[in-house]
Amino acid sequence: MTAKIVVLAVLVAGVFARPQPQFYGAPAPAPIRHAPVHVRPAPVLAPAHPPRYGLPAPAPVGPAQYNFDYSVSDNFGNDFGHQENRNGYNTQGAYYVQLPDGRLQKVTYVVNGDSGYVAQVEYQGVAKYPAYHPAPSYHPAPSYG
């Protein structure tokens, strides 16, 4: 038992007696000390109205009224536009777009209170598709004869 203690004491002494590594190089730079900066915390702003989860959105203060209209037509085949009028909950409008097949698609819609979005879709012109002649994706093996 005493032999185990002696061996353990020698091992512990060896660990503490080993030479410490020495570093040869530039000394570590001194820490940079900045002047203290006094920052006032930002004020906590409460929303004008706290959020009301699960409740319906508040009704508009006054009836919404607007009119707008735009259209785009250029030499590259772009031809589309939109027009809308609104007075309160009654909305009427139309939009159109030139389709790649040559037809003009026009959508006329009405939104009247709780009746929802009611649309009527019309197409003007005849669809034209270019002739398609696919090339074979394989080449037959040559015949030797």
Rank of each mutant, 00 (worst) to 15 (best):
Q92A: 00
H82F: 07
L99H: 01
P41Q: 10
V111K: 00
Y66S: 02
P136D: 06
N90L: 04
N78W: 03
A46P: 06
V61Q: 11
V126E: 11
Q105H: 00
V37C: 05
N90Y: 04
F80P: 02
H49R: 13
V72R: 12
F68T: 10
V39R: 15
V118H: 11
G77C: 09
N112F: 08
P56W: 10
D79K: 04
Y95H: 05
A46N: 12
R86S: 02
Q83R: 14
Y70W: 11
A94G: 03
R52I: 14
R86F: 03
P63C: 04
Y89A: 10
A57N: 11
G81V: 14
H82A: 01
G81L: 06
G125S: 07
Y123G: 07
Q124A: 13
N85L: 08
Y95A: 02
Y66R: 06
H139N: 10
A57Y: 14
T108A: 06
H139V: 15
A119S: 13
Q92R: 06
G62K: 05
V126N: 08
F68V: 07
L45P: 04
D114F: 12
F68R: 13
D74M: 04
V97Q: 03
V118M: 14
A135F: 04
Q65A: 07
N75W: 08
Y132S: 05
S73G: 08
Y109E: 00
P56L: 06
S73Q: 12
R103M: 13
N85P: 00
A64D: 11
V110F: 01
Q83L: 08
N75H: 10
H49I: 11
A131D: 09
A57K: 13
N78V: 14
D69H: 07
Q92L: 02
T108Q: 08
L45A: 07
P134Q: 07
E122S: 11
A135D: 08
E122P: 04
P50A: 11
A57C: 08
N112K: 15
R52H: 14
N78D: 10
F76I: 05
L55E: 13
D101G: 05
G62C: 04
G77S: 09
Q98N: 08
V37P: 01
